[in-house]
Design a protein around this nucleic acid. Structure first.
Lengths: 252, 252
DNA sequence: GGTTACATGTCGCAT
DNA sequence: ATGCGACGTGTAACC
């Protein structure tokens, strides 16, 4: 049994289990009434309440409330986690530098402490990233962008940042392409405009294309107003994707 | 005791505890060897391994590996969580629409199942947000920005969104101020440029200032290239903030 | 370690 | 519901 549980653990038990867990590579969780205090890039205080506290062996510390996707407080991996005594109860204390931050969890009523010697070597396989879109464009430039388009350079570095694709159209005009995997935003238009600034001065003929599965009217209008273009790559839209209810075997 | 634990729970137990937890507002966690499958905005597959699975009563489902701040897979709040039977073992199934997504967690070896009737009504109190920086600028415009600067309008609404500060300099020229609480990015430059576009047409004299604790050379150059300015507000840099090691009493 | 840009970002707010 | 910007964003890639 790779798990270990302690009901209503004493402060010394919490101290020992957390310390050993950090050393042995085990996940330690605590279901507890607690109070939380954070200071660093920002600062915050959370009054008493019941939460799930998770201490991972890489120094990650999470405090989860009964609702919400995100932890209300946390410390990213790399922090050092310790347990101190605070007036008869245990205090989880995580600290890191760069930036200098700390998180304190006062475990007023630790109901359940668990240790899990988790062994997890699998690598996560991901689909549908922007990288896949890039690959598709690189291998099907004419289908993806337009007839006669060819890629000259992928991920071109410039003074203003990285350009997704730099290419030429059928008539030899230079084309700057910015790719987004989600519906395009005004920020994305700005980003393309920023890159355009590099080329328009020396060559007013340069074209700029924003490639995305969709774009709002406002974005499409902003593009037109600046002489830029939008190419809809609907193959990568989420909505239109068949929700095929794959089963596990499809992934193997 | 607001917690309940089940060692090596049977699929029916998992089904019951998760279902009841969702109804009663309890956090249910499971330490288990599992396999995970996700499809929606992106897609992914994670082979067998030991993880911490958390089901919150608001529909949040989290799968945490032994390291890393973020869950490897998740479903945000609002999803419906169910447990199905899959060849003798339990399958946690979360689904939501808009966007259409699902997450499946095949609990091959559920070591420990816990239920926590968490009662958490405290509100999180935050300090050090961008709002504080705005307050500082509003109350110390000349120290923060430059001699003779005065705020005409805070959070001015424009066609393109809200401008942090609209003001006048010592010579009466209009000034658009964009405030960032972290090191400025190229995106922030873009944003300021977008706002500037509104005013430059009618008044080419208008100045644009990006205020942030720091900015890279490239960002400063991008600003200069567009006739914009950078003001370093180092008072709000995290590094220089004294890490004063407050205690709990300081917050009360 | 710094800079840059992506992310299943999530979250909150305003239309 | 959708659009838009902030976030203690985290995270990887590149230098």
């Amino acid at each position: 049994m790779p798990t270990e549980t302690h009901e209503n653990p004493a402060p010394e038990t919490i101290e020992r289990v957390v310390r050993e867990g950090q050393l042995d590579g085990a996940i330690v969780t605590c279901l507890a009434a607690c109070e939380v205090e954070y200071d660093g890039r920002s600062g915050g205080y959370l009054g008493p309440g019941d939460r799930l506290v998770v201490a991972k062996p890489d120094g990650t510390l999470l405090v989860h409330r009964p609702s919400g996707h995100q932890p209300v407080n946390w410390m990213p991996g790399g922090a050092t986690i310790k347990v101190e005594e605070d007036g008869g109860s245990a205090l989880l204390y995580a600290r890191r530098s760069n930036p200098n931050e700390y998180l304190r969890v006062y475990l007023h009523e630790p109901h359940l402490l668990t240790r899990f010697d988790a062994d997890d070597t699998a690598t996560y396989q991901e689909r549908g990233t922007e990288a896949e879109m890039h690959e598709y464009i690189e291998q099907n430039p004419e289908t993806a962008i337009e007839d006669g388009f060819r890629v000259v350079e992928h991920e071109r570095e410039s003074v203003y940042g990285y350009i997704d694709f730099f290419g030429k159209d059928a008539e030899g005009r230079p084309v700057v392409v910015e790719v987004k995997r989600r519906q395009a935003t005004l920020n994305n238009v700005d980003q393309l405009k920023r890159y355009m600034g590099l080329y328009r001065e020396s060559n007013p003929d340069v074209r700029g294309i924003l490639v995305a599965p969709s774009a709002s009217d406002r974005v499409q209008r902003a593009l037109r107003d600046d002489g830029l273009e939008f190419v809809e790559l609907s193959e990568f839209a989420v909505e239109t994707r068949e929700s095929s209810e794959k089963t596990l075997s499809d992934f193997l």
